[in-house]
Design a protein around this nucleic acid. Structure first.
Length: 638
RNA sequence: GCCAACGUAGCUCAACGGUAGAGCACCGGUUUUGUAAACCGGCGGCUGAGGGUUCGAUUCCCUCCGUUGGCUCCA
């Protein structure tokens, strides 16, 4: 007899070899029906698993968050079977779960097209309706290799798998796929799904390998969850910075310059508001600012190591038969400035910032609105210091990051620490010291971080700050990079307290990262409803009729004199239409004025997104708005 | 760069291989308006570019450019 301990502490005696499914049945028909898989001794297993001895058992139902992972994984298998039925020459490669769903990589010469999705779904529905059991078949590694002989993908999967027992899952009717499991008990339990997209994907993510087709699907426990997810995607699309940028007339892109953003007047207002604030904070944190040229002699880039490590991403030009490079980074220029005179340890830490315009060649398939471009402005800085100052300087940068991100309303970002890449300069010893200093600073600030093995820059390890866009794609904003190599290449020195010349340590750092990317992320974060201090237009003055146009015109002038931004909607439209337009432009304050307001020198103020209006004096509104801007207030309430 | 899809007016979208349309925007006029779209009229296109098939191509085929979603790469 096996002793089964249930989550509520109850003990159940069942004969050895009883399956978990049978136990669920014993506990109740409802549970058996909802059961997806089980936790046993801390492992997730199939319901067909037999029990023996003393076990802790928890049956997972569709209500448990863990079970959706299993459903999605099983759904991937159902899709794989459906695709194999439709295209019998399909070779299956790999089908994991991802956020919100799953994908399956397949090797099939004929392209799967979006118009095929319905057929695939229909075939999947047949498999689901059949509700055939998903049976686990365990074989030895040797037998498994025999079973998949001739299939390079599955053979590779087995070779990568650990353990001596290799499992396959069959849905009956001849379909079986190599899989670790666990799976839902039968094909009817995979939940509600939809095929979303198909894209190319290299085998093992290696561009030299064959390109496979990756079919993406989403899968949810209930029909409503599926619909909610599809609705969320629709909502997210409305936040897309590329759409908002056009709607609000902030920036544009043109065929004449792919990957090069054109900023419009309203976009420049936001841009300048960001920079103005950035300069103020950097000044407070003890930074000076420089500006270095965009085009510099190619020889500089040989010396810096960029020629050997970054050439593929650089633009070049020739003037008077001399070769020049368009800078992809600001550091070499900054180092030339450093070397214009001698430095003392007394100047250290020396923090030198630069809003540097850099160009990086990106393959055509990489570009994405403002967040992945070929020309961007880095909010760069280079800190020169002594080795013993590294950790406190890194801590200072982290504090600056937190202050800046906080001011813009970003709270959800994650941190990565990237270590030595295969292609690098500098000794292993130097890399270790640098990496430890970065990790030490993060620990000191009590920040959680993820380690990215081998993902550092060629000249040093780095800390990166990442944030997600509206489609849940993660983008890097800030970066802190330690560099012991560049100062040596450029023979940077400082005079130490003992009157010897030493090589300084250099920290590269960018906080907003790329101003273009930052603007894009900012727009998505606020769905275009920028905080007051960043809004291109603080208020729009809207006269009820032409009778009040004159008062309205004077009001716009007074608002400008107060240092605020407003525009006038003097069109012959009725007030309702003006309000609609102001909302479309996401203007924070709508100042409606008619004869009554003109008489009392007041405005009927409406807040973006709201329904009601409030009468306040012009003076009051100006004071309040100025205060809110000074405080960078998020709340528009009057 | 690779795989797939897409590209029609400033924007959002129509148009079985048979004379390219609508709404919004813009311009003109009427209306003088009180809080999420008043009315009438007008302007607007080498259908991304180039080639091919066809009596005839926005539509079918090819090449290029660009965009979108992925892959790889990166701020």
């Amino acid at each position: 007899m096996a002793k089964v301990k249930l989550p509520d502490g109850k003990l159940l005696d069942v004969p050895d070899g009883t399956t978990i499914g049978e136990i669920a049945q014993k506990i109740g028909a409802g549970l058996a029906k909802a059961a997806i898989a089980a936790h046993i001794q801390g492992r997730t297993v199939d319901l067909s698993t037999p029990v023996k001895g003393e076990v802790d058992l928890r049956i997972l139902t569709t209500k448990d968050p863990e079970s959706i992972e299993i459903q999605r994984h099983s759904c991937a298998h159902v899709m794989a079977e459906a695709i194999c039925r439709l295209w019998p020459s399909t070779k299956l490669v790999y089908g994991p779960t991802v956020r919100d769903g799953f994908y399956y990589d397949i090797d099939l010469d004929e392209p799967v097209r979006p118009e095929d999705f319905e057929r695939i779904e229909a075939e999947m529905n047949k498999i689901v309706t059949a509700d055939s059991p998903m049976k686990r078949i365990e074989v030895s590694r040797q037998q498994a290799l025999q079973k998949v002989a001739g299939d390079p993908y599955k053979t590779d999967n087995i070779q990568r798998a650990t353990g001596d027992v290799i499992s396959f899952y069959s849905h009956g009717d001849g379909f079986a796929d190599l899989c670790r499991g666990p799976h839902v008990p039968s094909t009817g339990k995979v939940g509600f799904f939809k095929i979303m997209s198909v894209a190319g994907a290299y085998w093992h993510g290696d561009a030299s390998q064959k390109m496979l087709q990756r079919v993406y699907g989403t899968c949810w426990p209930t029909k409503k969850d599926l619909q909610d997810h599809l609705d969320r995607i629709e909502e997210a699309k409305k936040r897309d910075h590329r759409i908002i940028g056009r709607q609000l007339d902030l920036f544009s892109f043109h065929d004449e310059g792919p990957g090069f953003a054109f900023l419009h007047p309203k976009g420049m207002i936001v841009w300048n508001a960001i920079i103005e604030f950035w300069r103020k904070v950097h000044d407070r944190y003890g930074y000076s600012e420089i500006k270095t040229p965009i085009i510099l002699n190619e020889a500089l880039w040989h010396r810096s190591g960029h020629w050997d490590h970054y050439k593929e991403n650089m633009y070049f030009t020739t003037v008077d038969e001399v070769n020049y490079a368009i800078k992809p980074m600001n550091c070499p220029g900054g180092l030339l400035v450093y070397n214009t005179h001698k430095h003392s340890y007394r100047e250290f830490p020396m923090r030198v910032a630069e809003l540097g315009l850099v160009h990086r060649y990106e393959a055509s398939g990489q570009m994405h609105g403002l967040v992945r471009v070929r020309q961007f402005t880095q909010d760069d800085a280079h800190i020169f210091c002594m080795p013993e100052q590294i950790e406190s300087e890194i801590i200072g940068v982290i504090e600056l990051v937190q202050e800046l991100y906080g001011a813009f309303g970003f709270k959800d970002y994650h941190i990565e620490l990237s270590t030595k890449p295969a292609k690098h300069i500098g000794s292993d010893e130097i890399w270790e010291i640098a990496t430890n200093a970065l990790a030490g600073a993060l620990k000191h600030k009590g920040l959680a971080y993820q380690i990215n093995e081998g993902d550092g820059a060629f000249y040093g390890p780095k800390i990166d700050f990442h944030i997600e866009d509206c489609l849940k794609r993660s983008w890097q904003l800030g970066t802190i990079q330690l560099d012991f190599s560049m100062p040596e290449r450029f023979e940077l020195v400082y005079t130490a307290p003992d009157n010897t010349e030493k090589t300084p340590v250099m920290i590269h750092r960018a906080i907003l990262g790329s101003l273009e990317r930052f603007l894009g992320i900012l727009l998505e974060h606020y769905a275009g409803n920028l905080p007051l201090w960043l809004s291109p237009e603080h208020a729009r003055v809207m006269p009820i009729s032409e009778k009040t146009n004159e008062f309205a015109e004077r009001l716009v002038v007074r608002i400008k004199q107060a240092g605020l931004r407003s525009s006038l909607d003097a069109s012959s439209d009725k007030i309702g239409a003006k309000i609609v337009r102001a909302h479309a432009d996401k203007v924070p304050y709508m100042l409606v004025v008619g004869p009554k307001e003109a008489e009392a020198d007041s405005v009927s103020a409406r807040i973006r997104g709201g329904q009601d209006s409030k009468i306040v004096s012009v003076q009051q509104w100006i004071e309040m708005t100025k205060n809110k801007i000074a405080e960078k207030a998020m709340d528009l309430a009057i």
